[in-house]
Design a protein around this nucleic acid. Sequence first.
DNA 1: ACCTGAACACCGTTCAAGT
DNA 2: ACCTGAACACCGTTCAAGT
Lengths: 182, 182
Amino acid sequence: MGRTAQIDRAGILDAAMKLADYAGIEAVTMHAVARWLGVTPMALYRHVDSKDALLDGLVEQLLTSFPTLPETGSWADRLTAMADGIRATARQHPAVFPLLLTRSATTPDARKVRDSALSALAESGIPPDQVARTERLLATAILGFATSEVAGRFRGRDQETIDGDFAELMRWLKLAVADLRQ
Amino acid sequence: MGRTAQIDRAGILDAAMKLADYAGIEAVTMHAVARWLGVTPMALYRHVDSKDALLDGLVEQLLTSFPTLPETGSWADRLTAMADGIRATARQHPAVFPLLLTRSATTPDARKVRDSALSALAESGIPPDQVARTERLLATAILGFATSEVAGRFRGRDQETIDGDFAELMRWLKLAVADLRQ
DNA sequence: ACCTGAACACCGTTCAAGT
DNA sequence: ACCTGAACACCGTTCAAGT
């Protein structure tokens, strides 16, 4: 009969995220997460289907921690705010962030994030039939840059240079959006 | 005294690449590579320092398999040729390709690939002090797109749509380079 | 010089058993 | 309903031993 739960899905994801933040993604193992929570590894399987599902959960946590878009301001300012927010999230969780590029996440929460970007773009004045494609390319460019940054692909460059790179990327993206608006 | 070597570094990398191509990156284990080659796992350590070094070796193999840039043609055509070549490599080795974004590779061979891109850009007419930054951003954008594609982030979209996305990305990048040339 | 055998401390996951 | 114990087939890597 009923037994009070000691752990739950949220707590497991929380522990996994902290492990990743402190010790890297390869430190996120079922055994280690369980150890952190003071249970046996097998106890986790009541709450997550598999290690793969756990990693998908981490990706979803990241997606939903993106700051919500400002409702006002020019499209250019909103794009900047979104990109800055994504980059800040990357820095908070550098080990998990690269998974965003390789695990697609089609959960309801993931949809919500994408939809808010889509509606912001719809208001920017670009042709309606270009909105979805533009969102995909903007997301890919920003995710690709932030992933490269936190994964150390720009290692050797100083922070000033990397910040300059990012500013230039944003200038390119605004150039493209401006071109689409005619 | 001397004993004829049964395996070498090149053969190990070859086996690892095939394993990755056929069964995914998580199938690339020291045990599995050794099994493929008909030796014990420990035999590999005479030729590669660690599993990490093995993965770095795979990244280097990918980098050096990028087609060399055409020497002639407009800068726009050369950029297209380079991007198409990188994308083709991504499709040949979809499991290994995403590692390019997270493992920087600073070997002599990696330098050679980058240097050829840099000299092509130097001839494109953009300000000399913008060449290095432009190369980084072009590489990041193209790598980010190709990684997303082979990792299945665009899953659900049909191939025609993805090809259209890529064409549009290239248009954006050419817009940016054209802007830099004035 | 190069490979093997035995071994270690880990993995992810299943299953039956306990409360 | 939830967690544990024991177990399985794996991992990466070290070390001493064989040829």
